[in-house]
Amino acid sequence: MKILFPQILFQIINFSIVMGALWYLLYKPVIKIFAARAKRIEEGQKAAQEAIAQQEKIEEMKEKAQYKLQQKSAAEMKKVVAEAEKQKLSIIAQAQREAASEIAKMKENWELEKSEQARQVNQQLIEAVIATTQKVIGVKLDDKSHRQLIDQELNTILKSI
C-alpha cells in the first residue's frame, strides 16, 4: 500500500476541477433558477395575498353597503307602512263618510219615496172612500169639504199605525 504525495496532489487538483466545473456549470445556474422561481412564487403569493386583502375589503364594503341599504330600506319600509296606515285610515274614514252620506241619501230618498207612496195611497184611499160614500149615500160630495174630512180621518188612522 503506497501513499504517494504526487498522486494525492493529483486527486486534490482533480477534485478541485470537478468542484469548480460543477459550481459554475450546474450549481450556480440551478440555484439561480431556484432563486428566480422562489422570487416568482413569492411575488405570486404576495399578489394573491393582496387580492385576498382586496377581496376582503370589497366584501367588507359590500357588507357595509348591504347593511346601509337594509337599514335604509327598513326605514323606508317603516315610512311606507306608516304612510299606508295613514292612507288606510283616511281611506277608511272617507269610505265611512261616503257610506254615511250614501246611507243618509238613501234614507232621505227612501223617506221621500215613502211619503210619496203614502201620499199616493192616501189619494187613492180618498178617491175610493169618496166613490164608496157617493155610492152609499147617493149624493155627490163636494170634493173639497169631504176631502178635508177624509184627510183628517185618514191622518188619524195613519198616526195610530
Binding site: 504517494l4 486527486q11 466545473a21 460543477l22 456549470l25 433558477i33 428566480a36
Partner: peptide, 30 residues
C-alpha cells in the same frame, strides 16, 4: 510520473461529471 489505473478512472469520472455539467448547463432554462 506514474499514471495509475485509479487516476485514469478518476480522470474518466471527472470527464463524465464535467460533460454532464456542460450538457445540463445548456439544457437549463428559466
Amino acid at each position: 510520473f506514474p499514471i495509475t489505473n485509479s487516476m485514469l478512472t478518476s480522470l474518466i469520472v471527472t470527464g463524465f461529471i464535467v460533460a454532464f455539467a456542460v450538457v445540463a448547463n445548456r439544457a437549463i432554462k428559466v
